[in-house]
Amino acid sequence: MALSGKLICSLDISKKGDVFLDIFRYNPHEFSAICPHKVHACELIEGDRGAVGSLVHWHYTHEGKKKIDKAVIEAVDEEKQKIVFDVIGGDLVEDKYKTMKVIFHTEKKGDAQVLTVTLEFEKLNTTVPYPTSFMDWFCSVLKDIDLCI
């Protein structure tokens, strides 16, 4: 069983990709207004909002439990409408994963606009499950956002 892996989810979205990039980069605090039963807050802890190197705390409910994660904006590519978060602490990585990156990328495919979420991770050991339930949760949050913005 591999210790590192990648999960990918692609969703057709009704908005242009720059709308999603903007909310993830500059306005993640809006998640709590859009889907308060899933995301409770996103606080800027260090750095400038949307800047590479900024540290944010995400407060959310997953699998019926309130959780907190710390993530750094690792990279932003406005041309490719891509943002990379490196999860550096909190419930998602604690005792489970050595590394976890969450990558959002939007692109036009034919007449459709597609949002792709990629989780790149390294498990601490072979008994740690793949983060499929987190990916399912994340995709449901993204669907909520697409409906509301």
Rank of each mutant, 00 (worst) to 15 (best):
Met1Ile: 11
Ala2Arg: 05
Ser4Gly: 03
Gly5Trp: 06
Gly5Asp: 09
Leu7Met: 12
Leu7Tyr: 01
Cys9Ser: 14
Ser10Phe: 02
Leu11Cys: 07
Ser14Asp: 14
Lys16Thr: 10
Gly17Lys: 07
Gly17His: 06
Val19Gly: 03
Leu21His: 04
Asp22Thr: 08
Ile23Pro: 08
Ile23Cys: 10
Phe24Val: 04
Tyr26Phe: 14
Tyr26Leu: 14
Tyr26Ala: 09
Phe31Pro: 07
Ser32His: 05
Ser32Pro: 12
Ala33Lys: 13
Pro36Met: 05
Lys38Cys: 06
His40Thr: 13
Cys42Asn: 09
Glu43Lys: 13
Asp48Pro: 02
Arg49Trp: 05
Ala51Ile: 05
Val52Ala: 05
His57Ala: 12
His57Trp: 01
Tyr60Thr: 00
Thr61Trp: 00
His62Tyr: 11
Gly64Asp: 06
Lys65Pro: 03
Lys66Met: 09
Lys66Arg: 10
Lys67Ser: 12
Asp69Leu: 07
Lys70Asp: 15
Ala71Thr: 07
Val72Met: 11
Ile73Glu: 03
Ala75Glu: 15
Glu79His: 15
Glu79Gly: 15
Lys80Ala: 15
Lys82Met: 15
Lys82Leu: 12
Ile83Val: 11
Val84Pro: 06
Ile88His: 03
Ile88Cys: 11
Gly90Trp: 06
Val93Met: 05
Glu94Asn: 13
Lys96Glu: 05
Lys96Tyr: 01
Lys96Gly: 01
Tyr97Pro: 07
Tyr97Asn: 07
Lys98His: 13
Met100Cys: 09
Met100Arg: 03
Val102Arg: 00
Val102His: 06
Phe104Lys: 05
His105Lys: 14
Thr106Ser: 13
Thr106Cys: 15
Glu107Tyr: 14
Lys108Pro: 02
Lys109Arg: 15
Lys109Tyr: 02
Gly110Arg: 00
Gly110Met: 08
Asp111Ile: 10
Ala112His: 12
Ala112Pro: 00
Gln113Asn: 15
Val114His: 04
Leu115Thr: 05
Thr116Trp: 10
Thr118Leu: 00
Leu119Gly: 02
Phe121Gln: 04
Phe121Trp: 05
Glu122Ile: 02
Glu122Phe: 03
Glu122His: 02
Leu124Val: 08
Leu124His: 01
Thr127Ala: 12
Val128His: 02
Val128Met: 06
Tyr130Ala: 13
Pro131His: 01
Pro131Cys: 09
Thr132Tyr: 08
Ser133Pro: 08
Phe134Val: 02
Phe134Glu: 06
Phe138Pro: 03
Cys139Thr: 13
Cys139Glu: 11
Cys139Pro: 00
Val141Glu: 04
Lys143Asn: 08
Lys143Ile: 13
Ile145Lys: 00
Asp146His: 02
Ile149Gly: 10
Ile149Thr: 12
Ile149Cys: 13
